Simulated assay, not measured.
Amino acid sequence: MITIKPITPQDLSALSQLYEELMGVPSNVRQMQKMFEYMERQGHYYVLGAFDQDQLVGSVMGIECMDLVGSCEPFMVIENVIVSDRVRRQGIGQKLMLQIEHIARDLRCAYIILVSGDQRKEAHIFYEKLGFKDEKVQGYRKHFN
């Protein structure tokens, strides 16, 4: 039975392992703990975990962003969507995404937005099945060392 619930500080070590599976590089767990505490204090970050019994098998993060355009409604950015290779295609990602969408609706967000690497074709199919539309926008990143 899969349970979706907020990530706690006790889950960060397991979350670090999931992120390594997603990104291919290990997380600095000590820095991760500091950042998690900061995010909790801010109150606009929602990090959910999918748990199979007590084992963390997936996660998603939503960030509530404020807007000054039009009616000034907030929106949510989705990041770090991961379901472990061991349990994919069992509906876990869908449960995570539906729960973060529920949070966004409760916050009265006008929309949710996410970006996905161009090479992640399987993920794109998954997002489209959940109702996300490929709007053919151009994304840019500038990394700092």
Results as ranks from 00 to 15, higher is better:
1 M>F: 13
2 I>L: 09
3 T>M: 14
5 K>Y: 08
6 P>G: 01
8 T>A: 11
8 T>L: 14
8 T>V: 06
9 P>C: 11
11 D>N: 14
11 D>F: 04
14 A>C: 06
15 L>A: 11
17 Q>R: 12
18 L>I: 03
19 Y>R: 03
20 E>M: 13
20 E>P: 01
21 E>L: 06
21 E>S: 07
22 L>I: 10
28 N>G: 07
30 R>M: 12
31 Q>R: 14
31 Q>N: 11
32 M>C: 00
34 K>P: 00
36 F>M: 01
37 E>T: 08
39 M>S: 05
40 E>Y: 05
41 R>E: 13
41 R>F: 06
42 Q>A: 14
43 G>T: 04
45 Y>F: 15
45 Y>M: 11
48 L>Q: 00
50 A>D: 06
50 A>V: 05
51 F>R: 02
54 D>G: 00
54 D>N: 14
55 Q>H: 11
55 Q>S: 09
56 L>F: 04
58 G>A: 06
58 G>Q: 02
59 S>E: 04
60 V>A: 04
62 G>W: 11
62 G>Q: 10
63 I>E: 04
64 E>N: 08
64 E>Y: 07
66 M>Y: 15
67 D>V: 01
68 L>W: 12
72 C>M: 12
72 C>P: 00
73 E>T: 04
73 E>F: 13
76 M>C: 10
76 M>V: 12
79 E>L: 09
81 V>M: 08
82 I>R: 02
84 S>V: 05
85 D>V: 04
86 R>D: 13
87 V>M: 07
87 V>A: 03
89 R>G: 00
90 Q>I: 02
90 Q>Y: 06
92 I>D: 03
93 G>R: 07
93 G>Y: 09
93 G>K: 10
94 Q>G: 08
96 L>Y: 05
97 M>I: 13
97 M>Y: 11
99 Q>L: 01
101 E>G: 07
102 H>A: 15
102 H>Y: 12
103 I>W: 02
104 A>N: 04
108 R>E: 15
109 C>K: 03
110 A>N: 10
111 Y>G: 00
112 I>H: 00
112 I>R: 04
113 I>T: 08
113 I>E: 14
115 V>W: 11
116 S>A: 15
119 Q>A: 13
